[in-house]
Design a protein around this nucleic acid. Sequence first.
DNA 1: ACTTTAGCTGACATATTTGTTTAACTTTTT
DNA 2: AAAAAGTTAAACAAATATGTCAGCTAAAGT
Lengths: 198, 198
Amino acid sequence: MSAKVQDQDTENLIKETAKRIFFGEGRFNATTQEIADAAGVNRTLINYYFRSRDKLFEIVFQDAQKCEDEMTKLIIFSDLPLKEKLAKHLDMFFEQTKQYPYLEIYMVTQMNQGNCYKDPEMMSTMLGKFYDEIEAEMDKGTIIRMRPEQFALNFISLASFPTSMRPLLEPTMGFTKEQFDTLLEERKDIILDTLFKQ
Amino acid sequence: MSAKVQDQDTENLIKETAKRIFFGEGRFNATTQEIADAAGVNRTLINYYFRSRDKLFEIVFQDAQKCEDEMTKLIIFSDLPLKEKLAKHLDMFFEQTKQYPYLEIYMVTQMNQGNCYKDPEMMSTMLGKFYDEIEAEMDKGTIIRMRPEQFALNFISLASFPTSMRPLLEPTMGFTKEQFDTLLEERKDIILDTLFKQ
DNA sequence: ACTTTAGCTGACATATTTGTTTAACTTTTT
DNA sequence: AAAAAGTTAAACAAATATGTCAGCTAAAGT
């Protein structure tokens, strides 16, 4: 039993380290040796626990993706008014992308290579519900009229882009790490103000 | 002389092919053989013209980046009112990202690995001018008040995200290629309507 | 205390990719 | 026609990364 505990420990250590290197630092081409070094374990342990580098990557990827999806589901299906729902999603999202800023970017490069794990069923259910709520707000006049898909795109753009492109934006716009953090903290309100009529 | 022309042709053919594979198709790990095959030339020609795969990549990358920068400069320093300036930038930008959707994403992964070629001098000049114009619009009351950096982030987010994340968004949101194209074409007006008060 | 076994390691074999070299062949230039 | 530049093919060396395997170690079970 406690053998299994130790197993879990090392296996998990490798997994978490790989996740950090891949999606926290954006080093998608990191070698098994680099991952092993970062985790402080022998390289062959990666093969021992995960068979191959590809499998490790796959597991880590699906892991991170599932985590994000669960949260999104939880918020979307909550009974809050739309604006509060979005506010909550922003909180969660900023937290998540702070830890793994490169996850979305990686998903983009993989999606077109056929490595996709999104559940289209769930996705369309969630989007449908989301679109309905957006239309209702437009009827109420709290947001300007447009196709709900466009509103959804606006929201996800305003939320995702600054975090997922941070490594590019921060130096390009001449910010220090601290300044950019401040900027991001202010963004939650900015985004809601931009999306909803004042 | 015409030897040089032929030289230019093949050299350019390789360059353009590599650019397409890297930043058009997002296959950042494409081998020299794959590039040569796609260009219909012998693999060793890549070494002949560019010494190494890395040099080729570097040249192609800087090339694409310079192209984008030139356009941006041209528009930013034009004498149009802000809203029209942004409209023009959107036109240019959608055109560019349609051709090389993966360019920005790649820049993100490279920026933090130290491979950065942005001119900070020029950047801060452009941003300064941009911020001033934004403040002027806020004074006029055509956009809601916020730090100009936030407005800039809003703009670049709304413009960039849907195109640079297209490979992810299109299937996730359940669009066909045609539907997504339509969506993007509508976006120019949507973005301006979202950023400026009605 | 002894055996078993999971966890772990070093060495090796293999595959992939890259860059170089040499020799031929073609086209262009002189 | 000769020379030069462009191009291809084949062969090779070197580097890098990956996966396997036999065997070692230390903890768990008996």
